[in-house]
Design a protein around this nucleic acid. Structure first.
Lengths: 233, 233
DNA sequence: TAGATTGTTAATCGATTAACAATC
DNA sequence: TAGATTGTTAATCGATTAACAATC
């Protein structure tokens, strides 16, 4: 039931499964390291990462330990090396090609997102069903009809699909991606969509996040999700 | 360390803390129920919810049990009542007023999001620093300067703030919200931001989600996050 | 060396799943 | 009643935290 056996980078001997929670934190670390690298910072400690992310220093070290040994005792982690290592773990040293289904206002905002390049993502093809959108050019991308999906996916080598269509259309869009051979799907529509075994659907649902905040608003329970301990920086 | 003591709806006697994981699933259930209510469905079982959400039936029942007893044994859950109960638990029977900082393409897409009303959210005020945006009207909202935040927050009664500014500006925007008395913050910028104790920051980070998918792409580990068991529908 | 900080093992805590009694 | 399905208690599993030895 471990998510990712055998993903241990060849370093850590036996294949411990990597907790999903760890995986979800990795890109946060990567993001900090990218910034520090731009700033010319040479070394950081797990305490520095705690200060920046709110994740406890020991948790940071534990997370990294699933993939190998990246630090120097008494010193900390070399920023550039750790950044490269994390990018490698997340398969972001090779370009990841995405396809996008749905070019409404959210889809258009996604096309304009300035950080794709920094993470080595590229949107390879863009689709919509609306006849008045198909054939147009949006933010430098030709909008293709949905039935062009299978060919386009093969052509651009996409492995990940993003769904940004209205809720009623989300399952259809997902099905189309599945038929086109896409096994990794990021759903932005505020409904749950299902895909067959062997596929992974993850959701970006801000309504859900807001609902959690709304819940927390009622009691003085706001004392969760805070940075803990002495922030070092 | 429990997130939400005393949130037990007055029904369940002692105040069991509600797991964050449960909280995060609640809006998924709510979403399904809203759809079913529109479709005129009278009753659903936990197995139905499993079929629609991928969350196991027993997990659904366990989640609901933190807040009370909503079902009828042998029968299932009355759609309308359960929807109302969940909306109440999430404090969504009263209107939740939001403020938005940052009216770039993502912010604009958020303003255009059609489902705010359905969840009883309302964007009460909108802010930006860019002089060429302040004073303009975007999707029916007047864009205000950041220093209008404290007054506006009081005036519209906002309790939740959304940050959709470029990464470099995200911490500043967060600080401005904090100074304006906002304690619940949803950050859309792909950086981690910090807020003082007593505040909650949650993040919507699709880069993070994509990074997880990218990781999962490498091994045949795609056999996670699937619907399990016999879907009933 | 002494101080700092990592990496790891053990202990705790929390969340999910299994089992089943309650009851419609 | 019999069948179905809930709600709850106990058992398992997974993730976080604490403690500490290793070592730069």
């Amino acid at each position: 039931m471990g998510v990712a056996k055998g993903a241990d980078n060849g370093r850590s001997g036996a294949a411990r499964p990597v907790p999903m929670a760890t995986l979800e934190r990795l890109s946060t670390y990567l993001n900090c390291l990218m910034q520090w690298e731009r700033d010319g910072v040479g070394t950081v400690s797990s305490a520095t990462l705690q200060g920046q992310t709110g994740v406890s220093a020991q948790q940071v070290r534990k997370d990294l330990s699933y993939f190998g040994e990246f630090g120097r005792r008494g010193k900390g982690y070399p920023v550039r090396e750790l950044r490269e290592a994390l990018a490698g773990i997340l398969e972001l040293r090779r370009e990841q090609v995405l396809v996008l289904v749905g070019v409404g206002s959210l889809g258009t905002a996604l096309l304009a997102f300035p950080e794709w390049k920094a993470y080595n993502f590229r949107i390879g093809a863009v689709f919509d069903i609306a006849p008045n959108k198909v054939g147009r050019r949006v933010r430098g991308h030709d909008v293709l009809p949905l039935d062009a999906l299978p060919d386009a996916v093969r052509q651009v080598g996409a492995r990940i699909g993003m769904v940004s269509v209205p809720p009623q259309a989300a399952q259809d869009a997902t099905d189309a991606l599945v038929r086109a051979g896409i096994r990794l799907i990021l759903n932005f529509a505020p409904v749950s969509v299902q895909a067959p075994p062997g596929h992974v659907v993850r959701n970006v649902c801000f309504v859900s996040e807001l609902a959690v905040l709304s819940y927390l608003a009622q009691s003085p329970a706001c004392r969760k999700a805070e940075p803990k301990g002495p922030p070092a920086r």
